[in-house]
Design a protein around this nucleic acid. Structure first.
Length: 582
RNA sequence: GGUCCCGUAGCUCAGUUGGAUAGAGCAACUGCCUUCUAAGCAGUAGGUCGCAGGUUCGAGCCCUGCCGGGAUCACCA
């Protein structure tokens, strides 16, 4: 149950009744009426802006509307207090029994708590990672991978029908470079001494590809022209690189539903088809682009190009679809790809890109509008750079020497859970510092451990509880607990925060911001640790009270619910909850 | 020079899509371990939300213009 939605429905029902009675004018728009937790909990449990939002269109004073509304809200079940404050806020307070009943919601739903139907099964495609298949993933891919995966999980939780997709860029010049690099390793496998020229991939992850080419083709490829061996070497190498990448992703706990090959777009003629469709709409023309403002590129030459009218859709300049050699640009194929997604039924598309592609967003969104006649929406989430540190010192990486940090290095060193959580402790569009020393530190400075520790503490109490109760603590026993004994402010605050989880899921999903879940969990852990320590100061607040079985069960139900919500939230982030930390 | 992102406490960052007196953590200072895990908790202190206008009942959030930092800039992918 989303408490806030629940009361929003009731408040709007009251507004409709007032309208029918002629106390509010006909035809008011209630969509801007919201029910939220007030910023300051002292104001109440729920707050609505209805009176302020409706004042102007209704031509009434906010307080007049508020008075009318408040009068009708007071009799509602569970409402103990309705007050009008500030410029016209209506604050509601709900009785303890209502809040305690939310614990039962959590226990009944278990790991499913927080699931919502807000997404209404909207088919949604989240494309993320999409690293070029030219080598193992490096640390730069890490953030987008985790972000996209968590976002996808969050959307699933919120009721969207999500496909996780990886776009394999296997059609451009870089895979030919890969093929030549692999062919060199092939010759090496056949006994030649090789040196790797500048411009080819030096990484020794291609050595097994050379071996494999040797195993499959013997020395047959040596006598072939490049035009003949290149496709063979390329396919083998791409296949091997994708296998590497899938392993890297698996190490992060990521599995895509669809791996989509760019090459198949070209091979099937869908690029041409897409361009024909755009041409039919009058969006393609031969033209000459004005040179970029400011300093010109050294090799700038003015020439006619095949252009897409992205300026019709808000872009700054029209964009080229063909290269000077007549082949399609990456953009042309990308339009075809996004059109393909649209034709597969995805009107809701999300791409997760690195910061270096931010200049590409507007043209891609323009293209999606064009190919879908405005029926599909593309949201592009940009993940800013991750700066690596070791005890405060930046980690230097050089591509040329091949001394870059791979994703696997990071996962192996600090663990999947730490990587995933830390990548989500920042908004995606803010840069992120990642210090190997700090993220493995086991202290409250480290949010991963802080949240994990809360969960572990809860499990510890639940494990020990059986002894004190004299019988095994079962879900049924907890479910049957009478909850009325939970009266302490800290306990109620914790319950209210638990009840806020479904709303956080919906808001986070709608905003495409999984980091909200990480922050929510951090706050939840903090409230739990606080409650725990109250038991240190005041034994009456401990979870297990020897001579009060009903209260003990109520508190165990509460912390069990906290455990469920932590586990449920961590599941969205793809992090395992810790059962024990010693 | 164009475009995009960022600018909130000394530091690192949240800020419920425009709500009430702007919040955490670190660092500093003061307390809390015979008792469910001190890997924790409580408290003190710290702010002209980059600057200036605008929009309205109301702006950290929206608009315009500046200032500062980053990314990117026909044809690569």
């Amino acid at each position: 149950m989303n408490v806030f939605n629940y009361f929003e429905v009731q408040i709007i029902a009251v507004l409709e009744a007032l309208t029918r009675e002629g106390k509010l004018p006909q035809g008011l728009d209630f969509t801007r009426v919201t029910v939220e937790p007030p910023r300051d909990a002292n104001h109440g449990d729920l707050s609505t802006n209805a009176a302020m939002v409706l004042a102007k269109p209704a031509a009434l004073a906010p307080r007049a509307i508020a008075e009318m509304l408040a009068e009708r809200l007071r009799p509602l079940e569970s409402v103990t207090e309705v007050s009008i404050a500030g410029p016209g806020f209506i604050n509601l307070r709900l009785d303890d029994a209502f809040w305690c009943a939310r614990i039962a919601d959590v226990l009944a739903a278990g790991p499913r708590y927080g699931e919502s139907t807000a997404g209404q099964g909207l088919r949604t495609n989240v494309e993320y990672v999409s690293a070029n298949p030219t080598g193992p993933m490096h640390v730069g891919h890490c953030r987008g991978a985790v972000f996209g995966d968590a976002l996808a999980s969050l959307l699933v939780k919120a009721g969207y029908d999500v496909t996780r997709e990886y776009y394999i860029n296997d059609a451009g010049g870089q895979v030919d470079v890969l093929a030549r690099s692999a062919y060199l390793r092939y010759r090496e496998a056949l006994g030649e001494t090789i040196s790797i020229p500048e411009g080819l991939y030096p990484g020794d992850y291609l050595v097994p590809v050379g071996e494999r080419l040797k195993a499959e083709h013997g020395d047959r490829l040596l006598s072939l022209d490049e035009a003949e061996w290149l496709p063979i070497a390329r396919d083998t190498a791409i296949d091997a690189m994708m296998a590497l990448i899938r392993e890297d992703l698996a190490a992060l706990g990521i599995a895509h539903d669809v791996f989509f090959s760019e090459r198949t777009l070209h091979a099937s003629g869908r690029v041409e088809e897409t361009l024909e469709a755009l041409k039919a709409k009058g969006l393609i023309y031969q033209g000459v682009l004005a040179p970029p403002k400011g300093k010109l590129p050294d090799d700038w030459e003015e020439r006619p190009q095949t252009l897409f009218r992205s300026t019709d859709f808000g872009d700054d300049v029209d964009r080229a679809l063909k290269k000077s050699d007549g082949s399609w640009t990456y953009f042309a194929a990308d339009i075809a790809y996004h059109r393909d997604k649209y034709l597969r039924g995805f009107r809701n598309q999300i791409d997760v890109w690195g910061a270096d592609h931010s200049g590409y967003i507007t043209r891609m969104q323009s293209a999606v509008k064009a190919i879908s006649d405005g029926n599909a929406a593309l949201d592009v989430k940009i993940c800013q750079l991750v700066k690596l540190f070791r005890r405060g010192e930046p980690v230097r990486m050089s591509k040329r020497s091949g001394s870059f940090v791979t994703l696997r290095d990071v996962v192996d060193e600090v663990g999947r859970d730490v990587v995933r959580f830390m990548m989500l402790m920042r908004k995606n569009d803010a840069p992120l510092d990642f210090d190997f020393a700090k993220v493995t530190e086991q202290s409250k400075d480290n949010p991963v451990f802080y949240v994990q520790y809360a969960h572990a503490r809860i499990q510890s109490v639940l494990r020990n509880a059986g002894k004190d109760l004299g019988e095994e603590l079962t879900p049924a026993l907890l479910a049957g607990a009478g909850l009325s004994g939970l009266r302490d402010e800290a306990e109620l605050a914790l319950i209210k925060w638990l009840a806020a989880f479904p709303r956080q899921v919906e808001l986070g999903a709608e905003a495409h911001e999984p980091h909200r879940i990480a922050f929510y969990l951090y706050d939840l852990a903090s409230m739990f640790h606080s409650l725990w320590n109250k038991g240190k100061d005041d034994p009456a607040l401990r979870f297990i009270i020897a001579d009060d079985r009903p209260l003990t069960l109520a508190r165990l139900a509460l912390i069990s619910a906290v455990g469920h919500v932590i586990a449920s939230g961590l599941a969205i982030l793809g992090v395992e909850p810790a059962q024990e930390m010693r």
